[in-house]
Design a protein around this nucleic acid. Structure first.
Length: 504
RNA sequence: GGGUCGCUAGCUCAGUGGUAGAGCAUUCGGCUUUUAACCGACUGGUCCUGGGUUCGAAUCCCAGGCGACCCA
């Protein structure tokens, strides 16, 4: 390992001694690799175009002969071959640097960045190439790239050293390019609809807006504990109170939970609030946003996700939580008004873990999670949730005990969550106080009462529809990625052993 | 939290108790149409860590670390 590195350090030193800085300052390219490939797509084998182009990239592969060499270089757009002819380089560079070709042969490695000027030719074997007359080593790489054929497959290394993963796995670059297109596309869509993005605090004195354990940190100057936000909900609603009618925030939130293929402790959500709208309007907006993203990024609504054919064509199926559970289990929880009877029916239906649940609504939700959720492959809106698990949602206008809420499920995963927002400050206070009591009783995912939020509601919030979409899960869907870690550039990892020991 | 699997050269991987290996990369030599270039020679190891069993451990046992997947 260190021998490989030492060899390259020595090469860098040799370049310096020959008067060439192995860490250059800038380079002006005329084209990207993809632009050249497109522009000269019709160039015939064995022909050359007398133009002067300039290009730069990372050397990915070297095939060196005595007086001729072929390098494959890669830039952000793709790859192109360099045709390096000793005679041509010597004619162009020989006066100032007679060793130019020899240095190219002996002092460059796969991994180095190089800038090249020359003409464009397609070789006899059909490979479009830049036939160099001048070159400059722009950065000397000290560490070897992974195997050119097998690449980097060790998932631990791919996540820990994502930069190496990105160098050698083009599809990983494509995933993050798509991710950027998706978030940009969502912002474009919302901007066109008159929404504005407002940034709300990440550091908060009390974390609210979702059922989740927060991360705790400390602010020295004010000598107080602070929490990283678990949602953007309560602040965005304050903005609606303040008179904005269409607001959103797309950003990172933090939940102090485990890691799985669907969970990372920091992840990205978008929350959108629209005054004078209800959850039906939000369903339409959800469909529009996801369809628009799919069309922009994939260009079709018929997508393959891990072998599953998913049709994103709207409108999507809508079914109440009660009906979905009834279909799956045969049990109609709407018919119960006695908790013990509901528990017995749940147990009968094979739903476990309901023994200590305090309400029929929670049992219904448990039944849904155990028996329904993972079966919802095609996009499906599950509507009308129990009030007990929805402390920020408005009571259903016609169904007692339920709220106007939906969640969107695709490929068995919760992908969006939305309510007609609760605007009655008295009702909201009761619900938050019930949460605070649950927290006092040991529920780590319950929150304290946010008095300022309640004050805001008392000034009056117009009827409002709110929507949250899990961006990571949406990106997983639209990039056919099986794990959330495939769509997060730098997912959370424990330190490796050496680093862990040092930290102690 | 539980279970299963994995960790050996820079990378990808063999190696089930008896001298640590292969391919690629690196290094050296040759080569003006290659593209997993080719030919020849060489080099490269904390076998994840610690302990145990044994004449002898990458291999068997125990504990731990990191990761993947599944379950709760």
């Amino acid at each position: 390992m260190s021998e490989l590195r030492d060899t390259r350090l020595e090469k860098a030193e040799q370049l310096r001694q020959a008067g060439h800085n192995p860490y250059g300052y800038s380079w002006k390219s005329t084209h990207s690799a993809a632009e050249l490939q497109a522009k000269y797509a019709d160039l015939e084998n064995g022909t050359e175009v007398e133009v002067e182009v300039a290009i730069a990239g990372r050397i990915m592969n070297r095939r060196v002969f005595g007086k001729l060499a072929f390098f494959t270089i890669q830039d952000e757009t793709g790859t192109i071959q360099l045709f390096l002819d000793r005679k041509k380089i010597k004619a162009a560079m020989g006066e100032e640097n007679p060793e130019a070709f020899g240095q190219l042969k002996n002092l460059t490695d796969a991994g180095d960045f190089i800038g090249v000027r020359g003409s464009v030719r397609r070789t006899d074997k059909g490979e479009l190439s830049v036939s160099a007359d001048h070159y400059e080593i722009l950065t000397k790489s000290l560490l070897p790239l992974p195997d050119k054929w097998h690449g980097l497959t060790d998932v631990e290394k791919r996540y820990r050293q994502r930069y190496v993963d990105l160098i050698v796995n083009p599809d990983v670059r494509e995933t993050f390019r798509r991710r950027a297109k998706i978030t940009a596309g969502i912002r474009q869509y919302l901007d066109a609809e008159g929404f504005i993005e407002i940034e709300t605090p990440v550091l908060q004195t009390s974390a609210g807006g979702a059922a989740a354990k927060p991360f705790v940190t400390y602010h020295n100057a004010t000598e107080m504990d602070m929490y990283l936000r678990i949602a953007t909900e309560l602040h965005l609603k304050r903005l609606i109170v303040g008179g904005f009618e269409k607001v959103f925030e797309l950003g990172r939130i933090f939940r102090n939970e485990g890691v799985s293929t669907r969970h990372n402790p920091e992840f990205t959500s978008i929350e959108i609030y629209q005054a004078y709208a209800d959850y039906d309007d939000m369903m339409a907006l959800t469909e529009a946003l996801v369809v628009d993203a799919a069309e922009k990024v994939i260009g079709t609504l018929e997508i393959d996700y891990q072998g599953e054919q998913i049709n994103l064509q709207a409108p999507w199926k809508r079914i109440t939580m009660h009906d979905a559970v009834k279909e799956a289990t045969g049990v109609d929880f709407a018919a119960f008004d006695d908790l013990d009877v509901a528990k017995a029916a749940a147990k009968e239906a094979g739903i476990h873990g309901c023994g200590d649940m305090a309400s029929i609504g929670k049992i219904l939700n448990e039944a849904f999670e155990q028996k329904v959720e993972e079966t919802l492959m095609q996009p499906t809106f599950i509507t009308d949730y129990p009030v007990e698990i929805s402390p920020l949602a408005k009571p259903h206008r016609s169904k007692p005990g339920l709220v106007e809420r939906f969640e969107l499920f695709i490929v068995g995963r919760e992908t969006a969550n939305s309510f007609s927002e609760l605007t009655d400050p008295v009702d909201q206070r009761q619900r938050l106080e019930a949460q605070a009591a649950a927290k006092a009783a040991g529920d780590e995912e319950a929150n304290d009462v946010d008095e300022d939020f309640l004050t805001a509601l008392e000034y009056g919030m117009p009827p409002t529809g709110g929507l949250g979409i899990g961006i990571d899960r949406l990106v997983m869907l639209l990039t056919n990625s099986p794990s959330i870690r495939d769509v997060i550039a730098f997912p959370l990892m424990r330190p490796e052993k050496a680093a862990a020991d040092e930290a102690e």
